[in-house]
Amino acid sequence: MKLIQFILLIVVVLLTSCSSKQTVKSDEMVLPKPGQIGIYYFRTPLHCETCDAIEKLIADELAGKYADQVNEGKIVFRQYNLDDPGVADFALKFDVVFKSVILLKDDQKNDLTNDLFLYILPKPEKARKQFEESLDKL
């Protein structure tokens, strides 16, 4: 009985101290306009240290080095929650089934998922470089 009380106590403490599920609102499910670069980030609302770091990297880059291109509409960032209705089907158009970051421009697609997930935590500068190189190539 004491054991069950102890477990319940842990549950209550954890429930009241942690609430890290994030709200990820899906953007409109459309392709980038002709000539426009689309940075499409597919994720879920589950807490994920790697995903948060990737999101921060993209946000920093778009607010910094690429701010002008974003303002001019040359680059657009769209985020999708894979749990939202219709998003999984939309993601399949790009062969995406799980958390992914892809760059789109006209008929070109560049999947950055592997590089960003591999480097973002141990070598964030390399992840930033890979992101910039890929974006600049388009």
């Binding site: 799980f98 958390k99 592997n114 591999l118």
Partner: peptide, 12 residues
């Protein structure tokens, strides 16, 4: 599989 291990295994 979680995000990280999923990408390492299925992606790479």
């Amino acid at each position: 599989f979680c995000s990280y291990s999923g990408v390492m295994y299925f992606g790479i």
